[in-house]
């Protein structure tokens, strides 16, 4: 019997009842997928939701090891600290990680700066994800999306059925009653599964705090080189970010609420340096989490549109 974390180091923590319910629900969903599908994979995007999802998966299959691989779709524009954290995490937990890059898109020079956010997301995230799922023949993919993130997510099922081209049809979703999930698919079809559907952003941070789950240091405030662009603070993570005339790199005390491709992810000015600080900052903030994501704000229904095309 192999356990990835020494049991004697885990103290008995009492979770509040609502987090315990959410935890149990997520574990049930994960076990269901592994019992019913041939080749599941867990999408790992390195952020806080992925961290919680991975933690829950380890709990779900304990004392067995994580019985499926993680998949990171790398756009090559992630923060360097994210990649370092990813590699440290899989090394520490001894997990099988698949990193997929859309090499064709890379060869065509697709990037957030050269191509704009929408083309970059389409080619380097959505297309890349489909490539990776097809390449490895995965029939079920876990994603860390939550229903409180965005309006069209609020109506997505926990088991979200995808046709052969990975497309989502919001008008033709399977009804989901009780905890009886219809997991049946035909060859070539796949299912995306969202075990964190019913968690909120605050639940995620509470859980991270109570369970001591490591997260990328970018979530904590620190003086970082940033530039003001379209009303957001963009971090200058490497020398690929061209500066427009008049743009000045400044050192500011900032942190991130969500993590993505660095040129598309806005930081907020903050003094939150501990998890407790983050939770209390969240309580007072008046801006939503995805507000920092430049790729969502094209138009109100843009997330639904991306999802129909196969975005997570």
């Amino acid at each position: 019997m192999d356990t990835s974390v020494p049991q004697n180091e885990i103290s008995q923590r009492l979770l509040p009842k609502h987090l315990k319910s959410l935890e149990a629900e997520s574990i049930e969903i994960m076990r269901e997928v592994f019992a019913e599908f041939k080749a599941p994979v867990m999408l790992y995007s390195i952020g806080k939701d992925s961290a919680v999802m991975l933690h829950l998966a380890i709990k779900a299959f304990h004392p067995a090891r994580l019985p499926f691989p993680l998949l990171h779709v790398d756009t090559t524009w992630k923060f360097r600290e994210m990649i370092a954290f990813r590699d440290e995490t899989v090394g520490r937990l001894g997990i099988n990680l698949i990193v997929h890059v859309n090499e064709d898109g890379l060869a065509r020079g697709i990037g957030p700066i050269a191509s704009g956010s929408s083309v970059h997301t389409q080619i380097m995230k959505t297309e890349a994800l489909k490539q990776a799922l097809d390449l490895h023949g995965f029939d079920a993919a876990f994603g860390g999306a939550r229903r409180d993130e965005e309006k069209s997510r609020a109506k997505e099922r926990i088991f979200s059925f995808r046709s052969q081209g990975h497309a989502w049809d919001p008008r033709n979703q399977r009804p989901e009653l009780w905890n009886l999930f219809n997991t049946r698919i035909r060859p070539g079809e796949t299912i995306r599964v969202f075990p964190l559907s019913n968690w909120t952003e605050l639940d995620i941070w509470h859980y991270i705090t109570l369970e001591d789950i490591p997260v990328v240091p970018l979530y904590f405030a620190k003086r970082r080189p940033v530039v003001r662009r379209d009303g957001a603070w963009i971090m200058v993570d490497d020398d690929r970010l061209p500066l427009a005339p008049g743009e000045q790199v400044e050192m500011r005390r900032v942190r991130f609420r969500t993590l993505g491709c660095y040129p598309l992810t806005g930081a907020i000015e903050s003094d939150a340096i501990t998890l407790e600080d983050i939770v209390s900052e969240m309580r007072s903030t008046r801006l939503s989490e995805r507000q920092g994501r430049l790729i969502d704000s094209d138009e109100t229904a843009s997330m639904e549109k991306k999802k129909r095309e196969g975005y997570f």
Binding site: R13, L14, L15, P16, K17, H18, L210
Partner: peptide
């Protein structure tokens, strides 16, 4: 942390 009161 540790308070188990809040319900869903």
């Amino acid at each position: 942390a540790g308070q188990a009161g809040k319900e869903l």
